[in-house]
Design a protein around this nucleic acid. Sequence first.
DNA 1: ACGTCCTTGATAGTTAGACT
DNA 2: AGTCTAACTATCAAGGACGT
Length: 283
Amino acid sequence: MEIFYEFEKDMPFLIEDWTPISMVETFHWHTPLEIGYCVSGQGWFYFGDKKYRVQPGDVFVVNNMERHIAQSDPEDPSRYLFIFFDPSIMDQMDKELLLPFIYNPAQFSNQIPAGTRIADELGALFLQFQQEYNERSVGCKSMMRGILLQICSLLLRHYGNNTPRKEMNRVFNSYNKLQPALSLMKEQFREPLELEHIADLLRLSPSRARHLFKETIGEGFKEYLTHLRINEAKRLLITSDLPVLDICLQCGFQSQTPFYRSFRHIVGVSPQQYRDQVTEMSV
DNA sequence: ACGTCCTTGATAGTTAGACT
DNA sequence: AGTCTAACTATCAAGGACGT
């Protein structure tokens, strides 16, 4: 499920105070980049197949293609501050500040653990940012912009220290090159899509497109597409009364068998079981 | 960085049938 | 009628080797 964030005029960023529910929701994604700071409580944060236990003081980095969702511990619900910002904010700045957000999910740790010096510094900046956002004094936009730049600079130090510049540039270029394909897939996963479509769009050979995919996001083309489709299926199972077969066809599967197979593989239960489980939990 | 070619393995789609 | 799976074949994606 894609979430759209509306930014105010001249302010391509916002901060949100948010407490996730204690049930695992479907993954979502969005175009803005995201940094989260756990203020209180406990819970979990899921990124694709990765799962992090969350405690107060943890910081999380989210790029604009990785599927993610947070979940609260029912005993002690977690509360977060999330900063969302449009990558274009760095257009006039050093683009390398975006590098922490351009990562290969398979090898990347989204969590900066509480108690580390950098997490403490980031936490303090989050609180300053929130204060500026709420008070709206004169110059607050510039202040927030400045704080955001500090946050991104700290992230760059944290993640970029061990990465050679050459490698960082390569990742940056791959990411930019792949963006149109990722956008197209997020918009059109309900249609039959083949690697060849993507290769045409990127003006690359199918082989090169395939390798670019794997190198950049650590997932194969089909794997990424199937995850988008199953995620949409989960959403429809929860939010509609449509028969499973209709949902299967609406999500881009051409027949039911691959749908059932993929669903069980990714979610662990059959579609109907998933629907029943979630309905039961929310009663 | 990108393309071509190749093999291997995975997945899509079909059909048939069990179960509720 | 709707949900789900097993067994099957055809097709496509993955990924490596190698050339430019």
